[in-house]
Amino acid sequence: MADNGDPVLRLTGLNKSFGAVHVLHDVDFTVRLGEVMALVGDNGAGKSTLIKCIAGIHPFDSGQIEFDGRPVTVDGPRAASELGIEVVYQDLALADNLDIVQNMFLGRERRKGLVLDEPSMEEAARETLARLSIRTVKSVRQQVASLSGGQRQTVAIAKAALWESKVVILDEPTAALGVAQTRQVLDLVRRLADTGHAVVLISHNMNDVFEVADRITALYLGRVAADVARAEVTHGQVVELITAGRSGDLGLAPQTAAESI
């Protein structure tokens, strides 16, 4: 049994190009159980690309992924979810024409023989939503097309929380939310970590990051500028890491930061 604080997911030397565009350069990234790791960086820094590599959506060019201390190959979304990695994507990836229950169980439907076990899926979906205090949906059989942006976000998070997962990755989960729903999502993020999950939170909002994160990894133009404990840095330093790749002693060597531009 891994304890809190043990690295559950460790990437080393990850490189990823789209054609001629080199998006990720030798990225090292570690997340630990019981910890919220904030992944920050400017638009286009490669945050979404990095998590898509972890989730098996994008194949990467070189590098290694270790899960629970063993090297693994994540060759598809199913492989990732079988390891216990759940991702809430920036674009949510919900099917508009399906209802909430159908979306939450998509690809992992419960069956009785050949037939879908709708009652048990509906009950489980409802329990998960209630446990996360998601109270704004009128019906779990409502089509996702008819939900508001915030409701869609909460459904996507509930979908990740439905499964017994070790690592939950959230790509800008609060970007589209109002004050109250942001509060709920941040509480939920903290709760996930406190109950032993490893959480990766991508966010542009420094207040959110400083409120819930234990560690912060800053990406600058596809390179890791710093991997630091939250307590050791200030808002200003993180902003500098994001915008310039370095801040005082922290960050990329001056010539690396400059040549990346």
């Binding site: 959506i57 990836a93 998509l106 690809g107």
Partner: peptide
């Protein structure tokens, strides 16, 4: 795309 990410 959602279906693909769901492992379908």
């Amino acid at each position: 795309e959602a279906a693909r990410r769901a492992g379908i």
